[in-house]
Design a binder for these strands. Structure first.
Length: 263
DNA sequence: ATGGTAGTCTTACTA
């Protein structure tokens, strides 16, 4: 089974690219982030025509996540237990949706952006990740054999080699010790990074800022990951980052991360 | 080339 994750930065702007990507790589399940649309605006028909079922949650023009699958899409869940909200009044944001595809729970995640290290959004991000780690811990305690993959845009670069210049990022978000500790806490809840060993760095990234020619200069960040439970980690046979999708007109600022599991 | 990109409910905000 081939699964993938991709922050598309608007599903409507990226529709043709996403459908072509699914077909080119023979992808069974895709976790999508930043669809940037409401449910009624999601382009269901092109996915159905390509053979995929869709589960999407989008409340407005921000965030928005989906799982599309051609191998089954059962027991769709929005959010996770204890997921923090944002705003006044406190509202849930469209940052997590999951579904069981065959025997694997595929979770599409869009972790909040901290904006800056001293912004209130940073506290929200850290709390959000802390709550996520608690939810993972509880789920795995209830069923240690659960097959689950949490994949998406984590907005954290866990290692110095995950950014093009550690010096440049001093004092910036994505690399601060609290963010890295919060990401590590999710791993410590019982997950492992399924992608890194198959896509070793340095200089391997999944995101390049649209501005300042970051992509042609190879100045990127690795912030998109697939974390898996032990039962699914044992099934991983390979992974790759499709840099081609960052090229040319109409590219997202993120590249897809593709993961192969044994059948 | 005094510019920086791209998306959205666009003259503001988010990433």
């Amino acid at each position: 089974m081939r699964i993938a994750t991709w922050n598309v930065n608007s599903i409507r702007a990226r529709l043709d690219r996403v459908i072509a990507f699914l077909e080119r790589h023979d992808v069974d399940v895709l976790a999508i982030q930043e669809t940037k649309c409401r449910d009624d605006q999601f382009p269901h028909l092109p996915f159905e025509a390509a053979g995929y079922d869709v589960a999407h949650v989008g409340l407005n023009q921000w965030n928005g996540v989906a799982v599309v699958s051609r191998v089954g899409l059962e027991d769709v869940q929005v959010g996770f237990d204890g997921m923090p909200g944002w705003g006044d009044p406190l509202d849930a944001e469209a940052r997590v949706i999951s579904a069981r595809c065959r025997e694997v729970r595929i979770v599409s995640l869009y972790v909040p952006n901290g904006r800056s290290v001293d912004d209130p959004h940073m506290l929200y991000k850290l709390d959000w990740l802390a709550r996520l780690s608690e939810s993972v811990r509880e789920r795995l305690a209830a069923d240690p054999h659960e097959q689950a993959v949490l994949m998406g845009d984590w907005n954290v670069a866990p290692l110095d080699e995950d950014v093009w210049s550690p010096e440049f990022f001093i004092g910036h978000t994505h690399v601060s010790p609290p963010e890295r500790a919060a990401f590590q806490a999710v791993l410590d809840a019982g997950l492992s990074d399924l992608t890194r060993e198959h896509t070793p760095g340095p200089g391997v990234y999944t995101y390049w800022d649209y501005t300042r020619l970051r992509f042609p200069k190879r100045q990127g960040m690795r912030i998109d990951f697939a974390l898996g439970s032990p039962a699914v980690a044992a099934r991983v046979t390979g992974a790759f980052i499709d840099r081609e999708e960052r090229k040319g007109k109409g590219a997202s600022d993120h590249a897809p991360v593709v993961l192969d599991l044994t059948d």
